[in-house]
């Protein structure tokens, strides 16, 4: 019955030259070569990409939802990090 637990791979695709790779989904494959071949069939049947990355899901480290506060709250009171914080008078022109 079993597929001998083919590992799960996360697939990233570069949509067009100049763009970064984006996560599109995952699939099972016995090895990296097959993961890329399968990704080609599953995720790029309509020219959705120019490059494919496959990485075993187990190799990905992820932050957990509970860390949300400690990771992102510190940015809450740092609005001055955005250009819109500063009012530049109209007569200065585009900046």
């Amino acid at each position: 019955m079993s597929t001998n637990d083919w590992p799960l791979w996360e697939i990233f695709i570069r949509g067009a030259h100049g763009l970064s790779h984006r996560h599109v989904g995952s699939l099972h494959a016995p090895d990296a070569e097959m993961a890329i071949k399968n990704a080609r069939d599953v995720y790029t049947r309509r020219k959705e990409g120019v490059s494919i990355w496959a990485i075993e899901s187990s190799a990905i480290a992820a932050s957990s939802p509970e860390d949300k506060g400690s990771l992102y709250d510190p940015a809450d009171d740092k609005v001055y990090r955005h250009p819109t914080f500063f009012d530049i008078p109209d007569e200065v022109g585009a900046m």
């Binding site: 597929t3 001998n4 083919w6 016995p30 090895d31 097959m34």
Partner: peptide, 12 residues
């Protein structure tokens, strides 16, 4: 499926 898994194991 078995053949592909065996091939992957051998390559590894």
């Amino acid at each position: 499926r078995d053949g592909m898994m065996a091939h992957a194991a051998k390559k590894k």
